[in-house]
């Protein structure tokens, strides 16, 4: 019964913050939507033309059917979702801290108001980042529609379920990284703007996880970095499932590693977030 109540509070908190986020987003999108839509469309078009110009002849793409457009679209769509999930918690936490009012050394931020509500902070963060996910879903749809119009097609017998499982695990692992990153914001101070955890994982991910090119291109002596990143495994399973149309058991190794990453990172994220909140209550001006 108690567990059920806690779950209810948790879900209610997520819903509440999601609705509030969407209300604010609605105000902004009334003006900004056409501009954002055009930006995304032009961005994806430039990648597609780039793929058509240079991509097709690479021997590294043979295992993926030799279609660079399909390769890069899957990479961009999945990476975009993972990176935004990683970034959202710390950026939302920074916003909650920075949208405060100060008088001398005293500040009461939105974070303080939220703490007064007693709602679980991880649920607050998930609720706050759900509207970012709405953005991401819209972006992904634009990517896929633009890609489809220019020749990107998936076969009917691709393993869509496996790809969805890999993406869900990847999103949860990224959420764990995001929670750890948000905890660091509590400790090092929101005004610094960058936290090392997120910077390392997202920056290295862009180069080493195989978003834009297969990791086989990377020299062997530094390729170990690719295997340390959870994004690498998500992308590998997604491409195997959608382009090579493998069954559930063939990518068992990357799937297992991804599952382990998810469990460890999500637990660590929640743990560090709790510790960071206690730290915050002992140090009124984080990072100063």
């Amino acid at each position: 019964m108690k567990g059920k109540t806690r779950l209810t509070i948790y879900l209610r908190t997520i819903k509440k913050h999601f609705i509030q986020g969407m209300r604010v987003k609605k105000l902004r999108l009334k003006w900004a939507l056409p501009f954002q839509f055009t930006n995304i469309l032009l961005g994806v078009l430039s990648y597609i033309y780039y793929a058509q110009t240079f991509g097709a002849k690479s021997p590294f793409l043979k295992p993926y059917g030799g279609n660079f457009l399909a390769y890069i679209l899957i990479g961009m769509v999945v990476n975009s979702l993972l990176v935004s999930t990683m970034r959202a918690p710390s950026s939302k936490v920074m916003r909650l801290f920075m949208s405060g009012m100060s008088s001398g050394r005293q500040t009461i931020s939105l974070m303080d108001h939220i703490m007064l509500s007693g709602d679980p902070m991880s649920a607050v963060i998930i609720g706050q980042i759900l509207d970012s996910w709405v953005d991401e879903v819209v972006t992904i749809v634009i990517y896929l529609v633009a890609g489809y119009l220019l020749g990107f097609k998936l076969e009917y017998n691709a393993n869509y379920l496996l790809a969805i499982i890999a993406v869900i695990l990847g999103v949860l692992a990224s959420l764990g990284i995001g929670f750890i990153s948000a905890s660091l914001v509590f400790i090092i101070g929101p005004w610094r703007g960058i936290d090392p955890m997120l910077w390392i994982v997202s920056t290295l991910g862009g180069v080493f996880s195989g978003v834009y090119f297969p990791i086989e291109v990377i020299p062997e002596n530094i390729r170990f970095i690719s295997y340390l990143l959870p994004q690498t495994y998500v992308l590998e399973v997604c491409r195997d499932a959608l382009l090579r149309r493998v069954g559930f058991f063939e990518p068992i190794y990357p799937l297992t590693v991804l599952l382990i990453y998810t469990i460890i990172l999500l637990s660590a994220g929640v743990f560090f977030l709790r510790k960071a909140l206690v730290f915050l209550r002992k140090n009124p001006i984080p990072g100063l």
Binding site: R23, L27, S99, G100, M101, Q106, D112, H113, S117, G118
Partner: peptide, 25 residues
């Protein structure tokens, strides 16, 4: 001086108060 961090200028007073009430249950 300290307490108005939640006030959003683009919402009406009533909407702001509703948002705050939701935020803090």
């Amino acid at each position: 001086l300290l307490g108005g961090a939640w006030i959003n200028g683009f919402f009406t007073l009533k909407e702001n108060l509703r948002n705050y009430a939701e935020l803090l249950n």
